[in-house]
């Protein structure tokens, strides 16, 4: 299943891109589900505009980490410092309004809605009109729908999915669904994008497209990207820094070359059959 490095042709990150200061600092995060320790005392930070990969074998706690970052899970211990503000935990709604968007490992699109509506829903925190205005199609409702439609169409153009905008997402093939989910996240114009295995189950061509989109987003909009990915070729190619988790513990952290040569990381991966 694992991709080889040579099969993917990816532009390396543009050298002009500037990586800023730390915008998210995770300190001593521990998360338990009953007796299961999903995360144990994990600390790492994320810098503005960087592509930060989280890797590790299945069950290592990668998805849980993203869920802690945008408030779906509340860690029992630790602190989260986001843009200088220190918190015990995040809340999903707060994370969304503060510019954190994400995609899910198992596609979490709104199945009954069209591609366009899914993407429009991504802009919901930016809409101000009330349901009364909506019902009466009055006041800000009309103007807002049009303005946000224009923004949604920009995302649709960016991802090259014009031809399916009116298709219910449930009818789309897997690869396109992943792309639409990215679109829904992008529609929020996030400053930080959490991507949970965006290329899993894709063929080479689809992977290349997805890589290109991720790099373009990072490059054009300066979006900070936190990426969970199993394909080592992709990870080593596009990420600025990599965190390695194993059994809920951090076993490596650094630039791709450092991580690649880390004894513990190699052991964990060999042990897990990679």
């Amino acid at each position: 299943m694992n991709m080889k490095l040579e099969t993917l042709v990816i532009d390396p990150p543009a050298p002009t891109r500037k990586i800023g200061g730390v915008i998210l600092d995770l300190q001593n995060i521990s998360l338990r589900f009953g007796g299961v320790k999903a995360l144990t005392d994990i600390s790492f930070d994320i810098r503005e505009h960087e592509i930060r990969a989280i890797i590790g074998p299945n069950g290592a706690g990668k998805s849980s980490m993203l869920n802690v970052i945008n408030g779906v899970y509340h860690p029992q211990e630790g602190r989260i410092v986001f843009r200088g503000q220190e918190r015990r935990q995040m809340e999903p709604h707060m994370a969304a309004t503060q510019g954190i968007a994400r995609t899910f490992q198992n596609i979490a699109l709104f199945k009954g809605m069209t591609v366009l509506d899914n993407i429009m829903t991504g802009r919901i925190t930016k809409m101000k009109s009330t349901f009364v205005e909506h019902a009466l199609w009055f006041g800000r409702a009309r103007q807002e729908e049009l303005a946000h439609r224009r923004k949604a169409e920009e995302v649709i153009d960016f991802l090259e999915i014009q031809h399916i905008r009116k298709t219910p997402v449930g009818r789309l093939p897997y690869g396109l669904q992943k792309r639409v989910e990215l679109g829904r996240a992008l529609a929020a114009e996030p400053s930080m994008l959490l991507l949970d295995e965006p290329m899993a189950g894709m063929n080479v061509e689809e992977k290349q497209d997805m890589c290109r989109f991720i790099l373009d987003v990072n490059d054009q909009f300066g979006t900070t990207i936190v990426l969970i990915e199993h394909d080592m070729g992709v990870v080593m190619d596009i990420s600025d820094r990599v965190v390695v988790l194993d059994y809920g513990k951090k076993i490596g952290d650094g630039v791709p070359d450092e991580v690649k040569n880390n004894e513990e990381v190699i052991k964990a991966y060999l042990g897990a059959g990679h």
């Binding site: 968007a101 829903t121 919901i124 909506h134």
Partner: peptide, 22 residues
Amino acid sequence: TSTGRAWMAVRDMDVAASVIGI
């Protein structure tokens, strides 16, 4: 409009809806 989209989002996938900011 967005009222209806919020309803359908909650109907189809409530975790994703809350992560989007609903």
